[in-house]
Amino acid sequence: MPTVSVTRAGLADMMVEDCVRARAAAGQVPPKLVFSSNGQGVSLAGRSREFRDTMLEAAWIHGDGQSIVIASKLTQAPLPERIATTDFFHDAAQAAIEHGLSFFIFGGSEKQNAAATDAIGRLYPRLKIAGRRNGYFKPEEEEAICAEIRESGADVLWVGLGKPLQEEWSVRNRHRLGGIGWLKTCGGLYAFLCGDAPRAPEWMQRFGLEWLFRTMKDPRRLAWRYLTTNPHSFYRLLVHTRRRPIER
């Protein structure tokens, strides 16, 4: 998957630029899809051509997992740093405040979504929150949900439905969301924001062991996932990483 070689600050600048351009277009262009790449996603893309094609619909894919950054060292265009969505959110919030952009918080349970939105308000009282909605809905409700999001005037829609649902939802509904600059998938971001899930120590993140920390905290849910995806993603990163930069 083509992964943008940029810093967290640089990606935040790209967000601002894309959102300002979307405002100027007055709803005439669809939002840009911004997805993240990690070990789970690499493994899933290797097993599902459908998911791989969905990922390739993104305007930007950033290296969310440390394994992606490590693999990039094999190339002529190594990634300057890991852009974990849980960290990038704070860069994005600061940039949004400086440029008057607004966020819509979509996904998670009602309790978690509300708690995460409250936490954002405490962390960034000057940040504009255009609206929020939980991630539980019926397929026939998607059009009304998109109308609610579009009418909120949000610049960035954070989509926290988990892989692969959030990527599939974003591709399926982007034509209904003209005027929004970014659809940014965010996985478990809300759990971290509201304190349901602690971050791994800095040294574990640096050595690509955040998955181990998370597994120790929630072995019943995560042990099988990481035992099956980690070896597969390691193989794919080793064998299929392109050495030369991709021209876009």
Rank of each mutant, 00 (worst) to 15 (best):
L157I: 01
R243T: 15
T215E: 12
Y124Q: 00
G10C: 10
D218V: 03
E148Y: 05
N230Y: 04
A12E: 07
T185D: 05
P219S: 06
M1I: 15
A84M: 09
G108C: 08
L123I: 06
V69L: 13
L79V: 02
G188P: 01
V69M: 11
V20N: 10
R221L: 04
R244V: 00
G41R: 13
K32Y: 02
F51T: 05
M15A: 15
R133I: 02
I129L: 12
W60R: 11
Y136G: 04
I61V: 15
N230P: 01
A96V: 14
R220P: 01
P164N: 04
R126Q: 15
G39P: 02
A96P: 12
H240C: 09
N173D: 09
A24I: 10
D18T: 15
A9M: 02
S67A: 10
A59C: 08
G135L: 05
L222N: 09
D155Y: 05
G46F: 07
L189M: 13
A12M: 10
L222D: 03
L238F: 15
T86G: 13
T86W: 11
E140D: 14
Q76R: 14
L183Q: 03
R236S: 01
D196A: 14
A197F: 01
N173R: 14
K32P: 00
F104M: 08
C186H: 10
L227P: 00
V4E: 11
A147Y: 00
S67M: 07
R243F: 09
R8T: 10
Y190R: 01
A45R: 10
M55V: 14
Y226A: 07
Q94H: 09
V239H: 07
A59G: 12
G107S: 07
G41M: 13
N38E: 10
L238A: 11
F234V: 08
E151L: 05
L238P: 06
F51P: 09
S48C: 11
Q112F: 00
H90L: 06
G162P: 02
G195D: 08
L227C: 08
F51D: 03
Y226L: 08
Q205N: 07
L127W: 11
A154R: 10
Q28A: 11
F213M: 06
T229C: 13
G131N: 06
H175P: 14
R49V: 10
I145A: 02
L183P: 00
P139Q: 07
R47T: 13
A25R: 13
T185N: 06
I70L: 14
W182G: 00
S72L: 08
G65D: 03
S5N: 14
L33V: 06
A71H: 01
R122M: 09
T241Q: 05
T86C: 07
R220T: 12
I97T: 07
R122S: 10
G179V: 05
G160A: 13
K32Q: 04
S152W: 02
L161D: 03
R206V: 00
Q94E: 15
L209R: 03
N38Q: 08
A92C: 15
W182V: 15
Q112S: 12
C186G: 01
F35G: 09
